[in-house]
């Protein structure tokens, strides 16, 4: 009985692939399927996670904008107080009298303007 001849090195390594072409094609298809599956799962996961991440990002931005808004409102209130303080009537009268040398008009110096119906020309 003749013993089968020992395969050379490259045949040992690649022989299996060349030995059955049909089985090689089948394994490639399953690999492809697995790859597609993995890709699909990864995409699905990304699709699920991405909106959440976006939402968190928007949330941070919103929180930041709200802080900014609160700060601007606070500034507005402070400025309003400042305006009200500057419009204190004793201060205004003092400036009018001392700096601008204004006086209260005498009764005879006042002209009353009555606005009636009709259009001004």
């Amino acid at each position: 009985m003749r013993r089968p001849k020992a395969r050379s090195g490259w045949r040992k390594r690649f022989g299996a692939r060349f030995s059955g072409a049909a089985s090689s094609v089948g394994s490639d298809v399953s690999l492809l399927k697995a790859g597609l599956c993995i890709t699909f799962i990864a995409c699905s996961a990304a699709a699920l996670v991405w909106p959440h991440l976006e939402m968190v990002k928007i949330g941070y931005r919103l929180a930041h904008l709200e802080r900014q808004r609160a700060k601007l409102l606070q500034d507005r209130r402070v400025l309003r107080i400042e305006v009200a303080a500057l419009r204190q009537l004793d201060r205004v009268e003092s400036i009018a009298r001392k700096k601008m040398e204004m006086v209260f008009p005498e009764p005879g110096q006042i002209v009353y303007v009555m606005v009636g119906p009709g259009r001004a020309n």
Partner: peptide, 26 residues
């Protein structure tokens, strides 16, 4: 009272009153 009436734009009797037409659109 005098200052308040002036602020309220109440003319006294015999005051000079200038009648002008309303310039606002009607």
């Amino acid at each position: 009272a005098w200052q308040a009436l002036r602020y309220m734009r109440v003319p006294p009797q015999g005051a000079r009153v200038l009648q002008v037409a309303d310039s606002r659109p009607r």
